[in-house]
């Protein structure tokens, strides 16, 4: 891809002669450099090293041996890889839109001056800071097939065959998604709250003068103004959904069977668990490419809208 196609149109500083461009480059880099040095040394280089490993066989004790595409061939033939990939995609498809919608809703609800609003904001952030073990135990109890409150409620409203949730292959993933949405929405609410604060009040007032209803104001003022925040939230949510690890380990540990096994679990088990670092790097390279292509797509969409 070329930079030109990606570059949005920030305000041109001057006529854009060559000297100005060089000066801008210098200025830009001085801003970026403090972060970039640390990022390059401690994140980017190890990441590149890990990707290089995906073409090698390496147990961490011996010298790496070049094997070309062997790891990828093994991966494509592995049943477990496909199961984990499918589970990861299903998780992301459930987790991303639900969390986004709820986080935005909560942020709108909490973006006002009310007595005690600080308390409510903290409360909604609570799931994110509650111990994961506590979350897993309580939600598993809520989901309990025989006497859990959720199934009792479902029975009460006339659903006779209530799902088995975490002890059923079909329902374990929805159960995990519900729990993760519940846990994460407070986190993303914080981001939306910051985004909402950036919308000039005048835009709403102008819309009101034009006679726009609440709903219209939401669609025509709030949503467009939140676009950069939404881009951030979508990318972070997509990335974190594809990397989901902790919650699944604590809640179902990938089970029952392989019903909730996801890619990052596979990467962890194959790599540091069994010492097949080349193979596990190959899986992470694939995961990376998937997420990167989704992100680039979103990036382009965002820039097209901005034009």
């Amino acid at each position: 891809m070329t930079t030109e196609t990606l570059t949005p149109a920030p305000v041109p500083v001057s006529r854009g002669n060559r000297k100005q461009a060089r000066r801008n480059t210098l200025i830009g880099w001085t801003f970026i450099l403090p972060n970039f040095l640390g990022f390059l040394a401690f994140t980017l280089i190890p990441v590149i090293a890990a990707f290089a490993l995906s073409f090698m066989e390496w147990t961490s004790f011996t010298a790496p041996r070049w094997v070309g595409l062997e790891n990828f061939q093994r991966m494509l033939q592995s049943d477990t890889f496909w199961v984990a990939l499918r589970n990861t995609v299903v998780y992301a498809l459930g987790h991303v839109p639900l969390t986004m919608a709820l986080a935005l809703g909560l942020a709108m609800l909490l973006n006002r001056k009310l007595k005690g609003i600080g308390f409510f904001r903290v409360a909604i952030f609570f799931p994110y800071i509650t111990s994961l073990v506590a979350v897993a135990v309580v939600w598993n109890m809520l989901f309990s097939p025989d006497n859990g409150p959720i199934n009792q409620f479902l029975n009460a409203i006339g659903i006779a065959e209530a799902p088995g949730w975490t002890s059923s292959s079909d329902w374990a993933m929805p159960a995990v998604i519900i729990t993760s949405v519940w846990r994460d929405m407070g986190y993303y609410m914080i981001l939306y709250l910051a985004g909402l604060q950036a919308i000039p009040t005048e835009l709403y007032e102008a819309a009101e003068v034009d006679g726009a209803s609440g709903w219209q104001r939401f669609w025509n003022v709030t949503i467009p103004s939140l676009r950069p925040t939404t881009f951030f939230v979508v990318v972070m949510l997509t990335v974190s959904s594809f990397k989901v690890f902790d919650l699944i380990v604590v809640m179902t540990n990938g089970g029952p069977g392989r019903a909730t096994t996801v890619l990052s679990q596979l990467i962890y088990q194959e790599g540091i668990g069994e010492g097949k670092f080349g193979y596990s790097s190959a899986i992470s390279l694939v995961l990376f490419l998937i997420v990167l292509s989704i992100t680039v797509l979103q990036f382009k969409l965002q820039q097209r809208r901005e034009r």
Binding site: P46, A49, Y268
Partner: peptide, 14 residues
């Protein structure tokens, strides 16, 4: 953004 997409488990050892 790309590096955010790489799970830490993958490059932990390097």
């Amino acid at each position: 953004i790309g590096t955010i997409a790489v799970p830490w488990q993958a490059y932990m050892v390097p």
